[in-house]
Nucleic acid binder design. Structure first.
Lengths: 155, 155
DNA sequence: CCTTGACTTGGAGCCGACTCCAACTTTTAG
DNA sequence: CTAAAAGTTGGAGTCGGCTCCAAGTCAAGG
């Protein structure tokens, strides 16, 4: 039998980058299962809990609302996903979302790169083309957004 | 001179997937520049505006707070980024964030795939291993999160 | 024995981002 | 001429996600 290392809420907070308050909050709304307690009532966390919290934190960074994280926890927790076909569907659905989010993000990165490069070798010629006229035929990878009105409400 | 197509706020909302209310709200907080008006006071949007709104929407999906989007608008709007070194720094900073977000998301996708596969060819043997025991040595690409306690508070 | 510190709880308050509303004007259709 | 549709404004309300108390418990140190 090996000793399972245990952590206080503070240590857990430090390790995950999620505040104690937030961890308690997640437990309150049952996003996290009720943590095991010591005799004195203090919460005890294990490695797995920390991994879960990190997963939540990671999902959160991607803008996912807490409610949508529940399916992940269900799978993460114990479940054999195959037991819950509905859950599997949800997961697949989320996978799609995330994949398309990655695409979105990649576009934003491209956008930034484009803008940064653009600035780099365009030596401040007084461009006065009024509006909407593309200044330069940019790479085939334009894809979507960017480049907007000249009317920015500047004096 | 070619005719620049113009859109109502409703059309704009439809095209961007952002509600009219939200568009007005963005204008109110000056996240969008004050839209041009017709004689009757109605807002008029152009292609560029629509692109901008889509960019906002895209950034929002990634969980970015509205305030952090302002630099993007500045660049998107008119600016030669090179003129504003501070802005360039911000952009680079955001680029980093986004790249690491992509990595996070990729991990989540891997996580899902792993879980889905796991379920696929594990044919429902009555697993009763109590807790935390990894059921199977999984791929070298474990990387981070997932797999959590068996204590999920389920009846 | 008393303080300090790390924890507990319940609940209040806060901020960001909408979302909804009432009151109003204008345009279009019948 | 009236009514419906689509817009305007300012402001209030809502909701998610924390964040911050106050009051209390317990454990160890001086």
């Amino acid at each position: 039998m090996k000793i399972a290392p245990a952590y206080t809420i503070k240590q857990t907070a430090d390790q995950t980058g999620v505040t104690e308050d937030t961890i308690r909050y997640y437990e309150k709304i049952a996003l996290l299962p009720r943590a095991e307690r010591k005799d004195n009532g203090h919460r005890v966390y294990r490695e797995e809990d920390i991994r879960t919290i990190r997963l939540l934190s990671c999902l959160k960074k991607t803008g996912m609302p807490l409610e949508e994280m529940r399916p992940f926890l269900a799978v993460s927790a114990d479940a054999d996903p195959a037991d819950y076909p509905e859950l599997v569907a949800q997961l697949r659905h989320h996978r799609e979302n995330i994949v398309s989010q990655i695409a979105s993000l990649q576009q934003v990165v491209d956008f930034i790169d484009l803008k940064l490069d653009e600035g780099r070798y365009r030596g401040e010629c007084p461009s006065e083309e009024k509006e909407g006229t593309k200044k330069k035929p940019i790479s085939p990878m334009e894809m979507s957004h960017f480049s907007v009105a000249g009317r920015t409400g500047k004096p």
